[in-house]
Simulated scan of single mutants.
Amino acid sequence: MSGGPLPVRGTLGFEQLVPAALAHRRGLAEVYVADTAVVGSAEYLAAVQVPRAHSLWFDRLVAYHDPFSAVEAVRQALLVVGQRHLGVPADAPASLQRMTFAVEDLSAFRDSEREPFEGIVRLRPGAASTERGYYREVSFDATLTVRGALAVTVRGSGITFPRDAYDEFRELQQDTRAALAPTATPAVRRLPPELVGRRDPRNVVLARTTAQELVLVVDRSHPSFFDHQYDHVPGPLLLEAFRQAAVLSATAAGLLDSPVAAVLDLAAQFTDFAELDVPIICTTAAVGDAELDEITVEVALHQYGKRIALAHVELAHYPATRERQENTGS
């Protein structure tokens, strides 16, 4: 894309954002959906744009937009389309259970350093099933195109609750878990940002305990992960933990030359809500072939002594990173 701004792409506009409440966000800078449209009987489009100077997504060490910002844009598109076009109540809580994310063209994320990262989400919701009126299980299939090129594919499923049912369920769950909470929380030391490919310490979501366990940092003052208050650890924070743990593990195993790496593929399962005030332990197992750039890390999150989430993360060097290292002989 070159020249001046193009405010309209076909029938979709990029001139203003949707109301923040539709994207379940509080801060206007945290809203990425500009417009939506219906395509046929079972497809929807959303125009999305990520701010260039975003405190989380611009915190990177390579001239590529963060592929995880595309995942967040798709997540918001699902919420907006659900309310605008599918009759999902505005206050209906949603819980992601399974998700796969694949970068189809890494070059689509190159940063021109002149324009924001924007594109078109094409969303195909699956059929919804209802369990005794208590929740609705829904699936989705989404793609993001950037300048006409297919950039990512995101697929997944989750459940939406009626607000009253969700509040009742979570109150009972938290009351049951209260007796299981540890009496003392171990002291932690947040990892240096350079170990996980970040510059800003605020965006580091992992720490070591005095026993050298890897644990999640749940910083409720973070302006993006906690744009508003939650009664559990939000999904985007868990995804970032998967990414940072995978990078840390692959670098330590010698599979990555540096923690400046791209996530090419991620498959995750979430089996329970992660509570805010109880330590979440992170374990990893890295496998792969550094010469072939085949690097996969299994990351598991544990709370109350049981696994609550599992992901397989495929990593790769950014082309510019590898070229720069080869040219400098490092």
Rank of each mutant, 00 (worst) to 15 (best):
W57Y: 15
Q269T: 13
V88M: 11
E131P: 00
F14H: 08
A207F: 07
V71S: 12
D200Y: 11
A181Y: 01
N327E: 15
T176S: 11
H65S: 01
G156Q: 04
L195E: 14
A108T: 10
L239M: 15
L195W: 15
R202G: 10
D231S: 11
L292W: 00
T209P: 08
V103F: 08
R84W: 01
A316V: 03
D219N: 11
L45C: 01
A184E: 15
Q83H: 14
G13F: 04
T185A: 07
L237R: 04
E171V: 08
I280W: 01
S330I: 15
D265C: 00
P89C: 02
G158I: 00
L214V: 11
V103H: 08
K306I: 01
A178H: 04
R177K: 13
T183W: 08
N203D: 14
F14C: 10
D105V: 10
L180A: 14
Y134E: 12
A77L: 10
S69L: 12
G156N: 03
A252T: 12
E137H: 13
P19E: 06
R322C: 01
R75T: 02
R202F: 06
D227A: 06
D277E: 15
R163N: 10
N327Y: 04
A187E: 13
A274G: 05
R9T: 13
R177T: 01
R136I: 00
V138W: 07
R190M: 09
Q76I: 04
G197K: 09
R52C: 05
D277Q: 12
A70H: 05
G158V: 00
P51L: 09
A127Y: 05
S157R: 13
T284D: 09
A70Y: 05
R26I: 00
A102D: 12
G235R: 02
